[in-house]
Write a protein that binds this DNA or RNA. Sequence first.
DNA 1: TGATGATCGGATAGCGCTATCCTAGTCAGG
DNA 2: CCTGACTAGGATAGCGCTATCCGATCATCA
Lengths: 338, 338
Amino acid sequence: MVRKSRSTGRITLDDVAQAAGVSRITASRALHGGRVVGAELVARVQEAATQLGYVPDPAARALASSRSTQVPILVPMLSNALFVDLLEAVHRVLYPAGFQPMIGVTHYDPAEEELLLRNYLAHRPAGLLVTGFDRTEAARQLIAGSGVPCVYLMETTDAPGVHCVGFSQSASGSAMTQHLLDRGYRRIAFAAAQLDPRTLQRAEGYRSALKAAGCYDARLELLSPERSSMALGGRLLEELVRTHPEVDAVFFNNDDLAHGGLLAAHRLGLGVPGRVAIAGFNDLAGSDQMVPALSTVHTPRLEIGEQGARMLLQLMNGQVPAQSSIELECRLVERQST
Amino acid sequence: MVRKSRSTGRITLDDVAQAAGVSRITASRALHGGRVVGAELVARVQEAATQLGYVPDPAARALASSRSTQVPILVPMLSNALFVDLLEAVHRVLYPAGFQPMIGVTHYDPAEEELLLRNYLAHRPAGLLVTGFDRTEAARQLIAGSGVPCVYLMETTDAPGVHCVGFSQSASGSAMTQHLLDRGYRRIAFAAAQLDPRTLQRAEGYRSALKAAGCYDARLELLSPERSSMALGGRLLEELVRTHPEVDAVFFNNDDLAHGGLLAAHRLGLGVPGRVAIAGFNDLAGSDQMVPALSTVHTPRLEIGEQGARMLLQLMNGQVPAQSSIELECRLVERQST
DNA sequence: TGATGATCGGATAGCGCTATCCTAGTCAGG
DNA sequence: CCTGACTAGGATAGCGCTATCCGATCATCA
């Protein structure tokens, strides 16, 4: 019943079982549940485990049960504070529930995401969190074929069987554009970088709002494939006011760019919002500190992380979430830059 | 020799071996090395593996060999871009070498770090990367007792047997202070948050430089235990100029605080650097975009990550690194804010 | 020419845990 | 008092891989 003791130094379940005077399998059940064990035995086993400082071997558990406690979460980039917040929220839900979030960074590259997915799925993860819906066909099949519960973050869809938590990128793009229109701006530019799907959806929102108001001018859309940065925001603003001096407002696709744009306006001696209004997106830390404070759209990334993680917890427990698609609201934050 | 085939759908090493017409163990050696296998067999096995889409099971490998390819890397906080850069650099070295960096966030809390360490060490990691030397005694013993190769990042020590890559926090604190002295400032304040050991070492550098110049005034040292943020930087600047109007320069312990301080100076109508000079630390993205551009200390976090990871690779391969302690240089970046 | 290695493939035995089946005991109902 | 349903523990058999020992083959040398 009890395996012969070895001398590796590692404390195994056998050691615990022996100390508690039960079989290995009973010790396993006492510690991890899975089946009812008498209250007294549970206590004895737990006592023995803490006494010996027993730590279960995740590799052995994963191998024997074909599932681990790991939950890969794939995000495009950590230098965007948005995703750091998202990770933090996910972590706060999953970690206390006994799961091990594993951060993967795709660098906005579908091929890299596919590679990561292939690697992480080999670890028999308990669940999976990914960003958006933009991925290779192979990646899609990997996810579907793995049978691992998956929740999609940041964007939403009504497709059946897809679990997602996000917000409407295009609606919030429209909302900010409408805000600028309401303030009387008419020559409203849009400046974006890192043309990922969410950026393009926001651009679409901007476009439709301006078209509805009869103010759309394609030449005021500045889409750069470069990585987003404050420096790039500055360059985009400079280019806009140089080539289109009539611009009276710039809607930057994210706060980093907007910060750079705002500071560039200072350098160029352009009054904000007098000469040119500036708006951002995401409401990152520091946007309220800019001079003038930056108008932006507050995105509910903490809620997305939290609710996405909760939804995944339900799926991992075999439950069916009440809603398979949760669309959260963004909040327009009107400050002094518009 | 070949195990009976099962129907789990998972492609195992047995399947590959069977397809290649060799034994399982030969397939294992052909794919992962460990012992020489004839060139022709290696080719056949690799062919079969790619053909079948074989992905090794990390749990089984870890269990059988008592070591995984995972490398936990523990950092205090992801909202500090410093650590994001560090992670990126580490990743770029370890991932292509076949290791799996696992990010752990300690939130500057030694108790949380200890918990993470306990969990991660149970995964039989191949190596370990941690930040600094400030941890609980239990955490220290966990690291030492695990036998897992460990490299300490950001700080250095001459203690024997300790492998570390970092830079001198106090020397770079002194250097920036000296720069301010050289520029003619005499009432130089120091503003810091998040009083981790590295912050305190930089404060020490500031202190010694000012004492050497005979300008030290303890009342100009503003140390806040709060988390670092732009908003806090603004508050600290306001407090300094209110309570000590004679201040002519503020050395912020990091760029986030400095950005906030700089913008607060704008709001208060204080000329920078005319009324008050402002200096930061780390040279984060955006510091060059501030108006005026921020003088700061460029910290070699990318090099630290890269060299730390390389050192760990050597240790994991059983080699002895040429140096066990690498101290890198910081670079003073003189811009317009001082 | 037989002894001596060196080389390379295979058989066997686990790594530490859990899934699954089995057994002995308990208890209600007819 | 027997039956069936249920409970709580245990024995057995792997999960997919690698460590370790074994044996066959072939070149090398006294």
